[in-house]
Design a protein around this nucleic acid. Sequence first.
DNA 1: CGACAACCTGTGATTTCCCTGAGAAACACA
DNA 2: TGTGTTTCTCAGGGAAATCACAGGTTGTCG
Lengths: 250, 250
Amino acid sequence: MVSIMTTTSPQGRTELLRPDGSPVRVLVVDDELSITELLSMALRYEGWQIRSAGDGQGAVQAAREFRPDAVVLDMMLPDMDGLAVLGRLRRELPDVPVLFLTAKDAVEDRIAGLTAGGDDYVTKPFSLEEVVARLRGLIRRSGAADRRSDSMLVVGDLTLDEDSHEVTRAGESIHLTATEFELLRFLMRNPRRVLSKAQILDRVWSYDFGGQANVVELYISYLRRKIDAGREPMIHTRRGAGYLIKPAAS
Amino acid sequence: MVSIMTTTSPQGRTELLRPDGSPVRVLVVDDELSITELLSMALRYEGWQIRSAGDGQGAVQAAREFRPDAVVLDMMLPDMDGLAVLGRLRRELPDVPVLFLTAKDAVEDRIAGLTAGGDDYVTKPFSLEEVVARLRGLIRRSGAADRRSDSMLVVGDLTLDEDSHEVTRAGESIHLTATEFELLRFLMRNPRRVLSKAQILDRVWSYDFGGQANVVELYISYLRRKIDAGREPMIHTRRGAGYLIKPAAS
DNA sequence: CGACAACCTGTGATTTCCCTGAGAAACACA
DNA sequence: TGTGTTTCTCAGGGAAATCACAGGTTGTCG
């Protein structure tokens, strides 16, 4: 088992690294090219090293050569059943966590036992933030002995706990809806960085979202009402560019 | 006989360890690959070290080399009768407890005799929580005189005894059905953590459950009626995410 | 200073998710 | 075999969340 460390970059962004300082490796397995590319891009942006495969055969081979620290696996592959692929992967990589991608309506069906090993899953269509968050969780937890429960995002006096989904400002607990929570998580994972509406839409909403772009404005408005209400504002608009979050003091 | 210690990790999760600090070892014997893999995953996640075998021959050999602290043994093996395997295993590992896996309709009286010696059994199809709980019990008890009552889960004023299956809230005893008990145990083993309905279904219901996912909602509803009735609620819904349990105060 | 674009937010329709009562089916036990 | 218990399905009600729309506000630039 490979232990995983975390470091914090100047931007305050926490990165996962292997003990030798090399980037974390993730294998993405899906037969739809658009999905693997979408994921590869998003995950590379996290600073991770990505390899992708389009079928079970390729997945097993890539696992052998690439030795990833985590695997993203679509359960619907052309050449073999998802469970079969899983079995083969496990033989190559006994302790590597797997994030499953499943169709929404398959959930009730046959997720049986999938999350048993501390694995996790997301349903299609997913949002990239969701996938990244889950993967980070899996990798952190597989990092073994170093099981620090570092699932806490902190910006100024604002905290967000990814395990309990709890959010507080100045110690005061704040209730957020699912979408509000994901939006805030994205902002807090990129403090002091301007995020465009398009970026936000891409990452926080699921990839097949077809609605109006101004949902972002709407949800920013919701967040402000809950987080900045009466206080020194932390969420700022950069007109023509996007939004950013930063500690109130400064 | 090897004595077993327990430590508590940062997450508050209790782990079983051997006196030298190395992880507990469990040997899993079943001819169905899907079962051994399912179990291996789940047990590894408990922080245990797992070895698996697909038949009696392999089991005996693995026992000799691997020196496990406990064995999970399917009573239906291809090459030899379960009892024969058991006999051979006992010769290798006289004091190691065994958890039997049996078909539901198997002759119960034979099993009854077997478990007299402090062993235990579960019927297929089992739930992972069930197997983990039984194994923990066996290992703890084989770990000798030092029976520290570590079989107690406590969250706020709610207590759950994994040995006696007794549950109390604010000192008041509460009767739960088997399924309610397992659900509550799973929640209490992960306090302050949001657990999705799929995760819950995965661990608490048996691996071949094919029903509606809303049984989870139903049983949460039952639990609330018994545990939160009239009191400050401890079971909380995170709409769109899952459920979590936490002490009432907070 | 005026005009335009970008942004904010109230309102309400729609959808999604959750809760729970009623009863059928499976089971446990005498 | 009968009775009480437990598990689970189904379906209706209700609450919450999501989102479109549109009118108001603020900022920017000529």
